[in-house]
Amino acid sequence: MTTTHETEPEVSPPSQRGDRIFAGLAKSAGLVILAALAAVFIFLAVEGIPGVNQPAETYAPLSSFLPYVGRLLFGTVFAALIALVIAVPFALGIALFISHYAPRVLAAPVAYVVDLLAAVPSVVFGLWGARALAPQLVSVQAWLGEHLGFIPFFAGPASVTGKTVLTAGVVLAIMILPIITAISREIFAQTPRLHEEAALALGATRWEMIRYAVFPYARSGIVSAVMLGLGRALGETMAVALVLSASPVVTLNMISNTNPATIASNIASSFAEATPAKLSVLIATGLVLFAFTFAVNFAARAVVARSERKFSR
């Protein structure tokens, strides 16, 4: 402290300047994101609001905006939920395998391969889903229709092309698998050693240790991971547009020929030949998707914050 009196003035200004520059960069990056989000919102609102009130034939086969967007929203949520139901158990299983079960030589390659899935463009997933996966799933769906037909989801009659919302859900599940896996794996691996050893020293098996120490610690992180996956599934366009021959219907039947369309895939498939009136309707549906995704994320944060408050006391 006392010996560096002369050097202090020389040393501290650069570091302060560095601090200021970095703080400025960080702040402006944050502001740019907010501005971009606001710009998107304003664009959607300005271009989309007229779409709420167009001539009835624009909403064919329906006649006004609310039922139109309502059915698309149903389809969007339905496909995304199917994807989540399929993807989440797999993602958590793979993440646990990588973080707690696999020998180290195996863990890294498995993690790498799963991450690679995220790099595949969604058009490729769409083509693969429509051309390769759908035909493979025809017999599976026929079986489901035959044996589990009493459940509304599998009421049938099963599609002969396999291009159903179930197939789309499977494709979506594969697409959101990497992000859910990557985030949960990071969180599982950060479980405090102290808590893991507390469980092990009580005579917990590995699975019991995971239930006692890993899951409680990772709970809020898992919710975030699932929400990010849900966000991706809600907004995914090409994969669904290519797989589904969709119509705006509301049905829980996952394996028949008439499938609910999603907002994003409906925009993609109607965009090219849209009249200006139709275009504003499509943009209005986009606004609804934007608002819905926002609300889902908001709700997820609230859930996470509440559970964290509960456990930090």
């Binding site: 808590h195 469980a199 020293a201 009580l202 005579g203 917990a204 006692y212 120490a213 409680p216 456990f311």
Partner: peptide
């Protein structure tokens, strides 16, 4: 073995949740 031979650690480690 660990069910019969208990252990207390240097830092207290109750399960937080």
């Amino acid at each position: 073995v660990r069910r019969q031979i208990g252990m207390v650690f240097q830092r207290p480690n109750p399960f937080p949740t």
